[in-house]
Design a protein around this nucleic acid. Structure first.
Length: 465
RNA sequence: GGCGCGAUAGCAAAGCGGUUAUGCACCGGAUUGCAAAUCCGAUUAGCCCAGUUCGACUCUGGGUCGCGCCUCCA
C-alpha cells in the first residue's frame, strides 16, 4: 500500500485515488526563457520516478506537466534578444526536451502551454469574480481577494496575520490587500501584440498562478489526486492555486478539495545554499552533462530522498558515478541480460516495493539494488542479474548495455577503441612472454589515459575511469 | 519578526524503541605474475541537555546550529 507524504497534512498518508485504479497528477513545470538547471532536473526526475512507480503499481496515470510560456521574464528576455516570444519559448522548450530526454525523463501525458489555455483561464477568473473572490483594481488588473477565501494558508501553514506581520509584502499597487495577487494583468502600450489577449476586462494577459489552476482542471478535472512541484512553490503559488480552483467551484454542487495529495521536492543546493537563478549559483543541465553521464546525474538525484536537500558538487557526482559503476559491473559478467519484467514475488523485489511504497524511498530501494548486485556478483545468477536490471528499470536506471556505460564517457585521452584494443593485445603478448615490466607499463599508460584494465579468466576487459 | 524543515560514521545517505542499512574512501584477508574487478572480514555513527522506558540514534520537552518560505523562483 502506497504512502505519500502530503504537504497538506505534513505527514505520510495512505494513497487512495479519487477513481480506483486511476491517478491524475499535475506538476508545475518550467518557465521557458532559459536553459534548465539542476534544480529543474530534480523536479523532472523526481516526478518522473513518481510517475513510473505509480504505473508500475498498476495505476492508469494521467500526468500533466505544464509549460509557462508567457510571463514577465519571458517578455523581458524576448525584448533583450529582439526575438518573438514564440521563437524564444519554442527554442527553450526544445532545449528542455533535450535535457529531459537525456536524463531518461518520460514525457508527461500532457504538456500544456499557458498560451493555449487563455480561454479556460478567463472562464475561471469570471467564476471567481461572480463568486466575489476577484475584483478589478483601479489600475485595470484583476486581482484575487485573498481575505474573501476561507482557508487561505492551509497548505503553507501561514495565517494571513502572519503574512501581514512579514515586512516583505509589496504595498505599491492598487490591491485591496497587500496579499492579493494578480489574475489578469492589464496590457501595457509598450508590450507587443503577442502578449495581449482580449477579455471582458480589456486586453491583457494571465497572471502566473491562474495558469496552473486552469490547465489542471481542464486536463484533470476540478479535483485530482496529486499535485507536485518544488518546495519553493508551496507559497504562494500552490496556496494561490487552491484559492483559485476551490474558489471557482464555490457555488457548485459537487465542489470539493482541489487536490488530495500535495508533493514537494527538496532543493538542489550548492555549498549548502539553494541553487537558483537569482543567486546565480546554478549549473545548467547541459553544462553538467558535458562532464557527467546523464544516467549518473539521474542516479545522483534518485539516490537521495526526494524531500531531502541535495548538495551538488563534483565530488558527489564522482561518488555517484562510482556507485553506478558497481551496479553496471554486476550486470556485465553474467552475460547478455534480457530487459525482462520484475518478478515481484522475489524477496529483493518485495523489499524494493516496500521502500518505494513508503513515500518513494529511493535511497532504500537502491540499497536493495546494491544487495542484489552483491548476490549477482557472488552467484553469477543470470536470473538475479535480470531481476536487478528490471528493478532498476523501474527507476529508469541500468537499461543500457553495461559495456556501453562502462566504456562510455569522456576520459580516455582521445584514445579510440581500436587504439585501446591494440594496446591490450600488446600487453597480452608481453604477458605471454612473461615480460611483466612491459605489460605493467602498458597498463600504467592506459590508466593515465583514463582506461582501467581488468583481467579475468575470460580475458582482459577495459572501462573508462 | 512569523511559519516550516533538518542535524547519522572521513564523505554521501536510509530504516528502525532492543539484532548488518547502502555506496564511496580507509584497513586486513581471498583471488591475481602484480594490479583492477569481485568475494570475505574489520574499523568509523547518531549536535547538546533533560525526560519517558527494562532498554532511545529512533518517542517527548528544551537548547544550539544549519536550511527554506514569507518577493520571481523547481
Amino acid at each position: 500500500m502506497l504512502k505519500i507524504y502530503n504537504t497538506l497534512i505534513r505527514d505520510k498518508q495512505e494513497f487512495v485515488p479519487i477513481v480506483p485504479g486511476k491517478v491524475g497528477m499535475y506538476v508545475c513545470g518550467m518557465t521557458v526563457y532559459d536553459y534548465c538547471h539542476l534544480g529543474h532536473a530534480r523536479v523532472m526526475v523526481v516526478f518522473d520516478m513518481v510517475y513510473r512507480w505509480l504505473k508500475a503499481s498498476g495505476y492508469d496515470v494521467n500526468y500533466v506537466r505544464n509549460i509557462t510560456d508567457i510571463d514577465d521574464k519571458i517578455i523581458r528576455r524576448a525584448a533583450e534578444n529582439k526575438e518573438s516570444i514564440h521563437a524564444l519559448t519554442q527554442r527553450f522548450i526544445a532545449a528542455m526536451h533535450e535535457d529531459a530526454d537525456a536524463l531518461g525523463v518520460q514525457r508527461p501525458d500532457h504538456e500544456p502551454r499557458a498560451t493555449q489555455f487563455v480561454p479556460e483561464m478567463l472562464d475561471m477568473i469570471a467564476k471567481l469574480e461572480s463568486n466575489g473572490l476577484a475584483y478589478r483594481a483601479a489600475d485595470g488588473d484583476v486581482n484575487y481577494a485573498v481575505r474573501k477565501f476561507d482557508g487561505y494558508g492551509k497548505l503553507s501553514g501561514k495565517s494571513l496575520e502572519d503574512l501581514r506581520a512579514g515586512e516583505r509584502v509589496e504595498v505599491t499597487d492598487s490591491k485591496n490587500d497587500p496579499l492579493d495577487f494578480v489574475l489578469w494583468k492589464r496590457a501595457r502600450d509598450s508590450e507587443a501584440d503577442e502578449v495581449k489577449w482580449d477579455s471582458k476586462w480589456g486586453k491583457g494577459r494571465p497572471g502566473w498562478h491562474i495558469e496552473c489552476s486552469a490547465m489542471g482542471s481542464k486536463l484533470l478535472g476540478q479535483r485530482f489526486d496529486i499535485h507536485g512541484g518544488g518546495a519553493d512553490l508551496q507559497f504562494p503559488h500552490h496556496e494561490n492555486e487552491i484559492a483559485q480552483s476551490e474558489g471557482a467551484q464555490l457555488n457548485e454542487k459537487n465542489r470539493g478539495q482541489f487536490v488530495n495529495y500535495w508533493m514537494h521536492n527538496g532543493f538542489v543546493r550548492v555549498d549548502e545554499e539553494k541553487m537558483s537563478k537569482s543567486l546565480g549559483n546554478f549549473f545548467t543541465i547541459r553544462e553538467v552533462l558535458k562532464k557527467y553521464d546523464a544516467e549518473v546525474v539521474r542516479f545522483f538525484i534518485l539516490r537521495a530522498h526526494y524531500r531531502s536537500p541535495l548538495n551538488y558538487s563534483d565530488a558527489h557526482l564522482d561518488d555517484a558515478k562510482g556507485a553506478l559503476t558497481r551496479l553496471y559491473t554486476a550486470l556485465k559478467s553474467p552475460g547478455l541480460i534480457e530487459g525482462g519484467r520484475v518478478d515481484w514475488n522475489e524477496p529483493y523485489a518485495a523489499r524494493f516495493k516496500a521502500a518505494m511504497d513508503d513515500d518513494f524511498n529511493t535511497p532504500e530501494a537502491m540499497a536493495v539494488l546494491f544487495e542484489l548486485a552483491n548476490e549477482v556478483n557472488r552467484t553469477q545468477s543470470v536470473a538475479g542479474a535480470a531481476q536487478l536490471k528490471a528493478l532498476a528499470g523501474v527507476l529508469g536506471l541500468l537499461q543500457r548495455d553495461p559495456q556501453v556505460f562502462l566504456q562510455g564517457g569522456t576520459s580516455g585521452g582521445g584514445l579510440d577503441d581500436a587504439a585501446i584494443n591494440a594496446r591490450i593485445e600488446a600487453r597480452i603478448a608481453a604477458k605471454k612472454n612473461k615480460n611483466f615490466a612491459e605489460a605493467d607499463l602498458i597498463r600504467k599508460e592506459l590508466l593515465e589515459a583514463g582506461i582501467v584494465l581488468e583481467d579475468s579468466a575470460a580475458g582482459t576487459t577495459w572501462r573508462r575511469a
